[in-house]
Design a protein around this nucleic acid. Structure first.
Lengths: 149, 149
DNA sequence: TTAAATTACTACAAAAAGGTAGCATTTATA
DNA sequence: TATAAATGCTACCTTTTTGTAGTAATTTAA
């Protein structure tokens, strides 16, 4: 039920980057916006670039950008990359071995719930998130407008 | 997506106890069956008894027994007791703060998946698990029978 | 009534996760 | 070409989680 802090940070960073329209995201900027511990964040960013989600650009005016299209990155991929492949493949509750002694009695009890969750995580891309974010912004802007005028 | 090892152990122990029909479960017996580190298991058992799931009986012939009816213990309760109340109340993915800056864009993206999961965990009791276990056993026994005769 | 079988408690050790500091390297631009 | 602004890397520190050891207390039964 709980992702590691590091995975949460990863989702935070990528979600943030996906919803802003900057050309470049230097670590220092992300640090100020997201308040993730500075050095830890930098390691995480390097890690995310090794994992192929973002690309690092060194030197002055450098920073990080997405290395592929937002629509090709979904939440399940990010979680899997951070937590390890097992995390999404095995029982959602993370049973490393089956509880009882023969083919895990638990598994099919929540197969449905489990697949629903994985489905959502797999079907939701950063592009979807971005769209949702902009729609929300518009709705709020219209609301403010109608209140003021 | 990942429960702590300790919570997994707790679910293992309780599921095991729920599906066997012993009068008493001494720590040493559970240790041999489940291979959870001996001393750690003992602490966990004490903890589970403090939390009201099982009762400890000290002295010779002692051990642990359920302190209430199996049908009154569901998985959500166990997880919540082990991981803390927040675990089940907040976002299933464990976001401590919202990802973006205004009312969490993520949340409603998987509200449905989330409630499905919680629903299953809440609606499945140890009694359900036990029933399922015995039905499975019967099915296998019948299958073996039909193959032999 | 003493020994054996059990849980309770406490203190410590090891491993994993999270966090920090500082220097090396790269690159754009003044 | 020197400097500033960026990432890369390595080594270390702190906290949390997991695991171990040993002794005290309790209870049954020989």
């Amino acid at each position: 039920m709980i992702l590691s802090k590091t995975t949460e940070y990863a989702l935070n960073v990528l979600s943030f980057m996906a919803t802003r329209n900057k050309e470049m995201y230097p670590a220092e900027y992300l640090y100020k916006e997201l308040k993730i511990p500075r050095q830890y964040l930098r390691r995480l960013l390097t890690d995310l670039s090794r994992k192929g989600f973002i690309t690092s650009i060194r030197g002055r005016n450098g920073g990080f950008v997405f290395s592929r299209d937002l629509s090709s990155i979904n939440f399940a991929q990010v979680i899997e990359a951070m937590e390890g492949q097992e995390a999404m493949k095995t029982c959602l509750l993370g049973f490393t071995a089956c509880i009882i002694d023969h083919p895990c009695v638990m598994h099919d009890l929540w197969t449905e719930a489990r697949s629903k969750m994985i489905e959502t995580l797999t079907n939701t891309s950063l592009a979807d998130l971005k769209n949702k974010y902009e729609m929300d912004k518009d709705t709020i802007a219209q609301l403010n407008n109608s209140l003021i005028h």
